[in-house]
Design a protein around this nucleic acid. Structure first.
Lengths: 207, 207
DNA sequence: GATCAACCTGAGCCAAGTTCAATTCAGTTA
DNA sequence: TAACTGAATTGAACTTGGCTCAGGTTGATC
């Protein structure tokens, strides 16, 4: 279980990374459906059939983007909370880490949130299914990250006792809901969002 | 502005309602993409081209479902909070109303959440665009419902002063995030979810 | 400079949504 | 009851966009 997918190492003229970057731009800005697979190829500067050398399908590319973003989220959570003993401080650190992202990563989070439903049903092709299963495991990992944080705080007496699973889902839901509406070009800077959510989470959990 | 779309009144042999119901089932269970438009026709018992008598496209049907659900959400909020003076009680009533839904409505909320991104970009066809714009207005209406509730509570001194817009978005995000994972057949009854979220919202807002 | 794997392409296939001209059906008018 | 009307319905053809295939190019390695 929990086999971390190894990214295919890049041959010197591999366009895989460029394709992923172009796909993130298009999927994030225009939406997955609205993006023609051929537009991604065009952006990269290759024929559309060349895409199939790297990805089995448009959806396979999407799932890869989602899985990568989930991996990053989990890694960032772990790194941010690793050496923070105090539960409230750990919670704060985790929230701040969640919003410490680049513009490209904002797009990836948006893509992830907008297509979560893809992870529920099984896929027909092998490689798509592999990415889907990996992504699902990562979702559960991230959920567990948050519930564990809450459980720890509750058992230490820093947080009142509540259903940690349910409350964790709430906290996570609150945090990621931001990616539905947040735009880097919008009126509210991410730092402000981060502070607001941080406070809200603490009140939700530690009151 | 804010022109409420009038549902075409049903001629005695109109299948519009049946189509919408069948579409909600399919879109909600299998997902919009995974559902073949012809499957909906089959369920209703008509040929697939007959669908185009009622809806301009598969997407037009989806947008209609979303707009209807948003309308319902707004109406329920208004009804639930209408004669509740006390801000905390009004907040509680609003949350409870949000989770006072039938299984069919759970599906509609899921569909709505899974395709919010459709509302951002403009549509090519007239009727689709009309539904999209109406839905967007309703989204803003619902957002305003929640911020107004918070503003009222803050000005009455029942809630501490905070950015009501941002906090409102958070509360709403928390509430609707449930529809991503909740299943009527799942282990957690909706009543339990409702209570948890109600408490969380109060702590978030009134602490 | 031969070999092999990685990489790329043009031509065309196929599924699913959509359009259209023709037709049926229910209710209304004469 | 025959003629008429508009809503409802259909089969067949069309369109779009993701995808397959058979074969060609490139460049690292020996």
């Amino acid at each position: 279980m929990a086999t971390r997918i190894v990214e295919p190492e890049a041959g010197p003229r591999s366009k895989r990374a460029a394709i992923l970057a172009a796909a993130v731009d298009h999927f994030g800005e225009a939406g997955f459906e609205a993006t023609k697979w051929s537009m991604v190829a065009e952006r990269v500067g290759i024929g559309q059939t060349a895409l199939y050398h790297y990805f089995e399908s448009k959806t396979h590319c999407l799932l890869t983007i989602m899985r990568q973003e989930l991996q990053r989220s989990h890694d960032m959570f772990t790194e941010a909370t690793a050496d923070v003993e105090e539960p409230v401080e750990a919670l704060r650190a985790a929230v701040r880490a969640a919003y410490d992202v680049s513009d490209q990563e904002v797009l990836q989070m948006r893509i992830l949130q907008n297509h979560m439903d893809l992870l529920s049903g099984p896929r027909k092709s092998k490689r798509e299914e592999a990415e889907r299963v990996a992504a699902r495991q990562l979702v559960q990992l991230v959920e567990r990250d948050w519930t564990n944080l809450l459980v720890r705080g509750m058992s230490q007496g820093a947080f009142p006792l509540r259903d940690a699973q349910l409350l964790g889902a709430g906290v996570l839901g609150l945090i990621v809901s931001v990616w539905r509406w947040y735009r880097p070009s919008g009126p509210t800077p991410l730092s402000e969002v981060s502070e607001m959510i941080e406070g809200a989470c603490v009140r939700m959990v530690a009151t």
